[in-house]
Design a protein around this nucleic acid. Structure first.
Length: 592
RNA sequence: GGUCCCGUGGUGUAGCGGUUGAACAUGCGGCCCUGUCAAGGCCGAGAUCGCGGGUUCGAAUCCCGUCGGGGCCGCCA
């Protein structure tokens, strides 16, 4: 070993000990006759001091930031008055007896001893340096603690961790698959798993009634701040359980996790709130509401039932809704600020935005002249809007009104600082619809996935009104993010057939794509269900990071590229030949 | 596929039509300095303002295109 101790562990009680340390030069302070180095490893930082005139420690003066040193020396209490209360090791220092340079370092492309904003492309290109920063080290350490907690918690409760294949089968439903060509079966393709969904259900058929896996999932869709093409889920599944058994287990897991490893965070409520999908969408316009603040949506169709305002009238006539939110203290918004909100609303799909400003010197706003004074009073009574507030109306289809007002609600959350960053507002959203109609393809899609159990009492609606069928699907939401999704699964092959048929799959297709599932369910499949919390997204929220990349060691950028290794990259002629693949690139650029 | 924003020494920013021979901080190099901890002092090097084209007497600054990066919509069972 190069070292007897870590840089972070030394304290007053080590005083007098001979120690050896190895680490990176965090900072160097050269005073001529005495030179200090802050030596860093992942456990912390300790001050090393030496007189560079002595040859055996002379290297302390040559050393530059991020050089790798081995230090031998004596731990001693710092002289009175020279202690540093801001450092964990600030009571002591190492009086070096030997300073050995293990490796030099070129000046870095950016400073790692400072948490300075740096172009993210540069950070990603030199990710291994970026990961030296305290912020990223902390994120990786937190990630380890979270995953370890999960493994311990579930193991103690009888869960088995079982691995499932990365090379599996493409499925017609859901996200776009990453395909992997087969060399041994030319022209055939594996798919990388979007999740181990089918495999974990088959493990239930095998009798592993409590399974989990820290599973990598891959989806070839466009990226977002909270979405990477490969991400990690806690995949778990249980047999002989009902919905609330799964919810209780997961709620218990995260409640204890927060208590044990996130002491700086507070749960909004325990037990967690539970909303139905319908309720969440009605009150917050979203199936993943941020419950850390109010600012709920209000439906105003009754108040405007007999309005003269043509825009509102027409929307009501055509079956749409008029809903509003109240932005507290925003009545004095300027024309430009309101225009910007309107632009924002349009970007979300709304046709426009009407406002009512309850200013101190009277009611103003774009809708003022269309809204009767008694209706203003009715709106205030309904929403609690006070003088000084700005009421924002969207008149549109239910879906557009909800989506737009939900986006506006989050805009005001950030603008007005309405949400406490130290609060974790976990909540359940349950009773999702089973199917959604896909107008573009004129067919029904599974809202969650096709293995989700419809509510038994809704089974007759398969023939009459699929839109009204609810399912035993549920989401865990946290601070406005969907952080887990799950369901009770279908374990009867007849119901599974029915679902596939409604989704428009032909019998041959069902057989070729999902025959193994249907068949498995005929060999004694137990009732089962589970869910899959997204580890990266949870960590992003736990760490207070603005995007998911900050909690992933080597993430992709928005274009799905790894800027460090420069992936993806072209395959060689030979590789393609072995796979019997010919490229047919439509867009000009040939790979070089 | 669409849309918006960003791109100035190694890094982070300022400058946004002409006293700017592009400024400041930090980093880098040299010298001085025995107690600092974002050490300090002095000196120095370092950017043709992502790239290409245009407008103009004059462009880092305005316009168009392009490349790179980010946010959002679509997409994400």
């Amino acid at each position: 070993m190069y070292k007897t101790h870590s840089c972070g562990e030394l304290r007053s009680e080590h005083a007098g000990q001979m120690v050896e340390l190895a680490g990176w030069v965090h900072r160097q302070r050269d005073h001529g006759g005495v030179t200090f180095i802050d030596l860093r490893d992942r456990y912390g930082i300790v001050q090393v001091v030496a007189d560079p005139a002595r040859p055996e420690v002379g290297a302390i003066q040559e050393a530059r930031a991020e050089w790798v040193l081995k230090i031998a020396g004596i731990v001693r209490r710092r002289p009175a008055g020279a202690e540093n209360p801001n450092m964990a090791t600030g009571q002591i220092e190492i009086e070096a007896t030997s300073v050995q340079v293990l490796n030099q370092a070129r000046p870095l492309p950016f400073l790692v001893n400072k948490d300075e904003d740096t172009d993210e492309a540069l950070r990603l290109k030199y990710r291994y340096l970026d990961l030296r920063r305290e912020r990223m080290q902390n994120n990786m350490i937190l990630r380890h603690h979270v995953v370890k907690f999960i493994r311990d918690y579930l193991s103690e409760r009888g869960f088995l961790e079982i691995e499932t294949p990365m090379l599996f089968k493409t499925t017609p439903e859901g996200a776009r698959d990453y395909l992997v060509p087969s060399r041994l079966q030319p022209g055939m393709f594996y798919a990388l798993p979007q999740s181990p969904q089918q495999l974990k259900q088959l493990l239930m058929v095998s009798g592993f009634d409590r399974y989990f896996q820290i599973a990598r999932c891959l989806r070839d869709e466009d990226l977002r701040g909270d979405r990477q093409p490969e991400f990690t889920q806690l995949d778990l599944e249980m047999s002989f359980v009902e919905r609330d058994d799964v919810l209780q287990l997961v709620e218990g897991l995260f409640t204890k996790m927060v208590k044990d490893i996130l002491p700086q965070k507070r749960l909004l409520a325990s037990p967690w709130p539970c909303l139905t999908y319908a309720e969440a969408v009605e009150r917050y316009g979203s199936d993943k509401p941020d419950l850390r603040f109010g600012m709920e949506l209000y439906g105003l169709n009754e108040i405007f039932a007999h309005t003269d305002f043509m825009v509102f009238q027409n929307v009501i006539k055509s079956g749409g809704v008029i809903k509003c939110i109240v932005a507290p203290g925003c009545a004095e918004y300027t024309r430009k600020e309101v225009d910007d909100l309107t632009t924002f609303a349009r970007e979300q799909g709304a046709k426009g935005l009407a406002t009512l400003a309850l200013a101190a010197d009277g009611v103003k706003g774009t809708a003022q002249k269309f809204i009767k004074p008694e209706d203003v009073s009715a709106i205030q009574a309904r929403t609690g809007a006070k003088t000084g507030d700005l009421v924002l109306f969207i008149a549109d289809s239910k879906a557009v009104a909800n989506k737009t007002l939900s986006a506006l609600r989050l805009l005001f959350r950030d603008r007005l600082g309405l949400a406490d960053p130290d609060v974790l507002a976990f909540a359940w959203v349950v009773d999702f619809p089973m199917f959604e109609y896909n107008a573009e393809d004129q067919k029904w899609d599974a809202a969650h996935h096709p293995f989700t159990m419809p509510k038994m009492e809704d089974l007759p609606k398969f023939e009459t009104d699929p839109a009204q069928i609810l399912s035993d699907a549920y989401d865990m939401v946290l601070n406005g993010y969907e952080t887990a999704s799950g369901s009770i699964r279908i374990h009867r092959s007849d119901i599974q057939q029915k679902v596939f048929q409604l989704l428009g799959l032909k019998d041959e297709e069902i057989q070729s794509k999902f025959g193994h599932m249907i068949e498995a369910f005929q060999f004694g499949a137990p009732p089962h269900g589970g869910m899959a919390p997204g580890i990266d997204r949870l960590l992003m929220i736990f760490a207070g990071e603005p995007n998911i990349r900050e909690v992933i060691a080597f993430p992709k950028n928005q274009a799905g590229r790894d800027l460090m290794a420069d992936a993806p990259s072209p395959a060689s002629e030979r590789q393609l030949n072995e796979l019997q693949i010919k490229l047919d690139l439509k867009k000009a650029e040939e790979p070089k």
